[in-house]
């Protein structure tokens, strides 16, 4: 009976809000048992959406993504409170390996290619969790090459010797090889020329639309991120201080001032800055 009731109910709720593929509920992360980095972060990523996670250096963006992928234990960090739900299952105690198998993969900050492996070998490591399905993996390799034609040209070069943009493409392509439904992108714009950043964001958008990959994007490049995302969260000192549809965030005067560097009233005094920070922190 209960199951019946639920199936009847679910289409209605789905109509109200799109079902979320990933939801992070009030998580707290502590490094080395003493350093409190995230102080209760909650966020939702809608199925098929692109969500931006914005904030300055050290705000906790990377930590949030690592907490989701469960990459923290290798850095002696742990999630001490809260829960993470991916596709309806709690995943906070699952290994990264398991998450990748379920379709949630992270592209780490700073690209992290395997430098002594060729570009193609790099891509193939992305298919590690899929076992030995050779034919399908070959097909997917071709698919990655259609999105990143440049990588095909450089397929046999060592990844350590290709350009930064190509490395970022390799990293994204490698993640794509695991056939993800959710990609966590950590600062794909880092250290890249503006034109290249745009190229990479365009490809991410294309992947989102054509391959149905939901994206959670941690970025410092607020302007670019809000252009491509539908929804955004702003993280400060380990807390979410503001969130909303990307369009609203773009127009919000505080965001404009502090993250986009556009001010309407000229310079503000430092006191106002401080009051803003206080207000935002406690209101959220």
């Amino acid at each position: 009976m209960d199951a019946m009731a639920q199936t009847e109910k679910s289409p209605e709720t789905a109509a109200e809000t799109p079902p979320s593929i990933l939801s992070v509920n009030n998580i707290e992360v502590i490094y080395d048992h003493v350093i409190l980095v995230l102080k209760g972060v909650s966020l939702e990523v809608a199925q098929g959406g692109i969500v931006a996670l914005l904030g300055a250096n050290g705000a906790g963006k990377s930590t949030t993504l690592k907490a989701i992928s469960n990459l923290l234990y290798a850095e002696r960090g742990e999630v001490t409170k809260g829960s993470i739900v991916f596709k309806g299952d709690r995943v906070d105690a699952r290994s990264t390996n398991d998450l990748v198998k379920r379709g949630c993969i992270q592209v780490m900050e700073g690209r992290h290619c395997f430098e002594h492996l060729t570009v193609e070998e790099n891509l193939l490591t992305g298919a590690y969790t899929r076992g030995n399905a050779r034919k399908e993996i070959r097909d997917d390799l071709e698919l990655v090459y259609t999105y990143f034609p440049r990588l095909k040209e450089r397929r046999s070069s060592l990844a350590g010797y290709i350009s930064g943009g190509e490395q970022q493409m390799t990293a994204i392509g490698r993640a794509l090889m695991s056939r993800p439904t959710m990609m966590l992108l950590d600062e794909p714009s880092m250290g890249l020329a503006p034109q290249l950043v745009e190229e990479i964001f365009e490809i991410v958008k294309l992947l989102n639309r054509e391959q149905g990959v939901s994206v959670l994007l941690a970025e410092q490049n607020t302007n670019m991120a809000l252009k491509y995302a539908q929804y955004g969260y702003i993280l400060e000192n380990g807390r979410i201080v503001m969130d909303g549809p990307a369009k609203e965030l773009r127009e919000n005067p505080d965001v404009k001032e502090f993250y986009l560097g556009i001010s309407e009233e000229g310079r503000r005094s430092f006191r106002n800055v401080r009051s803003y920070r206080r207000r935002k922190r406690w209101l959220s």
Partner: peptide, 14 residues
């Protein structure tokens, strides 16, 4: 070989 190169990245691809 991937682990030898960059164990964090290896971890991240599963």
């Amino acid at each position: 070989r991937a682990v030898a190169d960059d164990h964090q990245a290896a971890l991240s691809v599963g």
